[in-house]
């Protein structure tokens, strides 16, 4: 294990400690995460008949019309056909909730409808129903660019996310930007470091042999640098998610992705 950590820090040691700017920045040419996967993995993502994540999408579609929850009112009961009503919705998350002022990601919004409108218990983060609904709703924005607000009430959260992205963390003392801006294309533990774009999530990951949320991916990156893994849905990760969404702004959403 120690050898591996050493190897990992060596591999990343190649990235220079560029002067940290205080300005948000995006990769000059944005590239989606799947172009850093093998041709076989890319083919699996491109074919809905072969992409295992589509099993979760199918479950989400079923849940959308399910009347099992609290009041017996399904999502469809209020929102109608998701293909129309949820088109473009995922491009606008995370966003500030007008009522509470909190920054909500899509998972947070779905659970708000669960509790406030269906009067049911919220889904656990990373549970099959929450992953399925998130994947199903995100699919309705396939091919659409991100459209998040980073000013006004969201400005402070955006800054928190940006600052998280450029701050060195963990025993390996690495910031997100050192891998996902400065070491893009390099090999690390058999992976190829991508730009850390978020538009392919939720995704099916071979290593997990299942579907996972963006926060599960972020927890893996936190652990990778031996930093504290924040809880699923934590405000820090949601703020980071906002920064990532803005950083992916030029890329069409292509979730659900398939990853190593």
């Amino acid at each position: 294990m120690v050898g591996l950590v050493f190897a990992a820090s060596q591999a990343v040691g190649l990235c220079s400690l560029a002067a940290q700017t205080n300005l948000p920045s995006r990769p000059a040419i944005a590239k989606p995460g799947n172009v850093y996967q093998s041709p076989a993995t890319q083919a699996q993502q491109a074919d809905d008949g072969a992409n295992p994540a589509m099993l979760w999408v199918g479950q989400g579609e079923k849940l959308w019309s399910s009347t099992d929850a609290g009041d017996g009112k399904s999502c469809a009961g209020c929102h109608g056909d998701a293909v129309a009503s949820m088109k473009g919705v995922a491009t606008r998350y995370p966003q500030i909730d007008a009522k509470s002022g909190a920054l909500l990601n899509l998972e947070g919004r779905i659970n708000q409808c669960r509790t406030d409108r269906q009067h049911a218990t919220p889904y656990a983060y990373e549970s099959a129903p929450l992953l399925s609904l998130t994947a199903y709703i995100t699919l309705q924005s396939r091919g659409m660019p991100r459209d998040v607000k980073i000013d006004g009430a969201a400005a402070a959260q955006f800054e928190a996310g940006r600052s998280f992205f450029v701050t060195r963390q963990g025993q390996l003392n690495l910031a997100c930007t050192q891998c996902h801006d400065q070491s893009v294309g390099q090999k690390l533990r058999g992976d190829t470091i991508s730009q850390g774009q978020s538009g392919g999530w939720p995704a099916y990951r071979f290593e997990w042999q299942t579907m996972g949320s963006l926060h599960r991916r972020l927890r893996a990156c936190s652990l990778g640098v031996r930093a504290e893994q924040l809880p699923f849905g934590s405000p820090e990760y949601v703020a980071l998610e906002l920064y990532l969404a803005w950083r992916s702004q030029d890329l069409p959403l292509d979730a659900p992705g398939v990853r190593r």
Binding site: M1, L4, V5, A8, R189, G190, E207, R216, R217, L218, R219, A220, C221, S222, L223, G224, Q229
Partner: peptide
């Protein structure tokens, strides 16, 4: 086969 290095448990 590129083995998983078991580094990220997230």
């Amino acid at each position: 086969v590129t083995l998983s290095a078991c580094l990220d448990g997230g």
